[in-house]
Simulated assay, not measured.
Amino acid sequence: MNRTWSSFGGWLAAYAADEQSPVGDLARHAAEHPGWPWDEPESDHLFQAHLEEVGAEEPLLDALDEAWPQYVADRTYR
């Protein structure tokens, strides 16, 4: 994975172009949604609240549950 990101949004953006998975779907949602909290403090609860606020369906919420631990692990590895 491209390691030029410095936030969850940046990490997610690394998936937007070509990842065909639930995490990729989440990345595309974030890229296409003007209200995505790109500049907010890092918190999986914040991103979950945003998804719930915009009425996201369960697969996107599940994708966040999958993506956040991957991000934390990648951030720790970095």
Rank of each mutant, 00 (worst) to 15 (best):
H33R: 12
M1V: 01
G24L: 03
L46E: 07
W11T: 02
A31P: 05
E42A: 09
N2A: 06
F47T: 02
H45I: 10
A13F: 03
L61A: 03
R3A: 14
E66C: 06
G35K: 06
V54D: 04
R78N: 09
L26F: 05
D62R: 13
W38P: 02
H50R: 07
G35H: 06
D44T: 12
D62W: 12
W68D: 05
E32P: 01
Q20T: 12
G10Q: 09
D62M: 08
A16F: 04
E57C: 08
A14D: 14
W38T: 02
S6C: 10
W11A: 01
D39Y: 08
P34L: 06
D39H: 10
E40Y: 13
Y71C: 00
P59D: 07
R75N: 05
E42K: 03
F47K: 05
W36G: 01
P34A: 09
A13R: 12
D18N: 09
L64Y: 03
E42D: 15
T4H: 11
V72M: 13
G55K: 12
R3T: 13
Q48H: 13
W36C: 04
D62T: 12
W36M: 03
Y77P: 00
A67F: 11
F47L: 08
P34E: 06
L12G: 03
E66T: 09
S7M: 06
T76G: 05
A73D: 07
G9K: 00
G55V: 11
A56C: 15
S21I: 05
L64A: 03
E53T: 07
A16C: 10
P41I: 01
P22T: 01
A16I: 01
D74A: 14
W68Q: 04
A67E: 07
E57A: 15
